[in-house]
Simulated scan of single mutants.
Amino acid sequence: MTGAGQDLETADREIVISRVIAAPRELVFEAFTEVRHLSRWWGPEGFSTTTRAFEFRVGGVWDFVMHGPDGTDYPEWITWTEIVPSERIALLHGEHRDDPNAFASTLAFEPDGTATRIVMRTVFPTRQLRDEAVEKYHAIEGGEQTLGNLAAYVAELTQKERP
């Protein structure tokens, strides 16, 4: 799903996914930036995550393995490139440090009434890598499912906070 705010220079190399999550943006941001939360919801439906290292700071890394429902393990490596608390995160995501096929993602956390609109914009190095991610790895559906898992997880957290 692509939409407003696309850069014409990168439009053929990007994926933009957004979702409104019924929670304050500080909580949504926290769920996206603390490993104790991430490991509970990260990834498409049926996947689980094992974190090997996590340091949420510019230049820090999240080294983890996503376990697919079929038993396949996918090594993953994220380096945080920009952090604006409660507002924005930018990162580089690949299979390992110095992955030449790594892609850049920016996540914006925007107030939407009492909810939060999260907009995830991912730009791949080439159109071919974007197309492969969409066709072979179902990146659009996977991204939508991941944000759906985040919404469900945050809903659980807000239910627990209520008396």
Results as ranks from 00 to 15, higher is better:
residue 1 M to T: 10
residue 1 M to G: 14
residue 3 G to I: 08
residue 6 Q to I: 01
residue 6 Q to V: 02
residue 6 Q to N: 09
residue 7 D to A: 05
residue 8 L to Y: 07
residue 8 L to M: 12
residue 9 E to M: 10
residue 9 E to Y: 06
residue 10 T to N: 12
residue 10 T to G: 06
residue 10 T to D: 12
residue 14 E to F: 00
residue 16 V to Y: 04
residue 16 V to H: 08
residue 17 I to R: 06
residue 21 I to T: 09
residue 22 A to T: 07
residue 24 P to H: 11
residue 27 L to E: 00
residue 33 T to H: 03
residue 33 T to C: 10
residue 36 R to T: 09
residue 37 H to E: 14
residue 39 S to N: 11
residue 40 R to H: 09
residue 41 W to P: 14
residue 43 G to K: 10
residue 44 P to K: 09
residue 45 E to Q: 10
residue 46 G to I: 07
residue 50 T to C: 01
residue 51 T to W: 08
residue 52 R to H: 15
residue 54 F to G: 13
residue 55 E to R: 15
residue 56 F to G: 07
residue 56 F to N: 06
residue 60 G to S: 12
residue 61 V to N: 12
residue 61 V to C: 10
residue 63 D to W: 00
residue 63 D to Y: 00
residue 65 V to W: 03
residue 65 V to K: 15
residue 66 M to P: 14
residue 66 M to E: 00
residue 66 M to Q: 13
residue 67 H to S: 14
residue 67 H to R: 07
residue 68 G to N: 06
residue 71 G to I: 00
residue 77 W to S: 08
residue 79 T to C: 11
residue 80 W to K: 02
residue 81 T to V: 01
residue 82 E to L: 04
residue 83 I to T: 10
residue 83 I to K: 14
residue 84 V to W: 02
residue 84 V to A: 10
residue 89 I to P: 13
residue 89 I to S: 04
residue 90 A to F: 01
residue 90 A to H: 04
residue 91 L to E: 14
residue 92 L to W: 01
residue 92 L to T: 06
residue 93 H to M: 06
residue 93 H to E: 07
residue 93 H to V: 01
residue 94 G to H: 02
residue 95 E to G: 02
residue 97 R to E: 06
residue 100 P to H: 00
residue 102 A to C: 09
residue 105 S to A: 15
residue 106 T to M: 13
residue 107 L to R: 03
residue 109 F to Y: 12
residue 109 F to T: 12
residue 110 E to H: 09
residue 110 E to K: 13
residue 112 D to C: 07
residue 112 D to W: 05
residue 113 G to Q: 08
residue 114 T to C: 07
residue 114 T to H: 13
residue 117 R to E: 00
residue 118 I to L: 12
residue 120 M to K: 07
residue 122 T to M: 14
residue 127 R to L: 04
residue 128 Q to C: 00
residue 128 Q to E: 14
residue 129 L to I: 05
residue 134 V to R: 05
residue 134 V to W: 00
residue 135 E to Y: 03
residue 135 E to W: 02
residue 135 E to G: 11
residue 136 K to Q: 14
residue 137 Y to A: 13
residue 138 H to N: 11
residue 139 A to E: 00
residue 140 I to Q: 11
residue 143 G to K: 13
residue 144 E to N: 12
residue 145 Q to I: 01
residue 145 Q to A: 11
residue 147 L to V: 02
residue 147 L to Q: 08
residue 149 N to Q: 15
residue 152 A to C: 03
residue 154 V to P: 15
residue 155 A to T: 10
residue 158 T to I: 08
residue 159 Q to I: 11
residue 159 Q to S: 12
residue 161 E to C: 02
residue 161 E to Q: 15
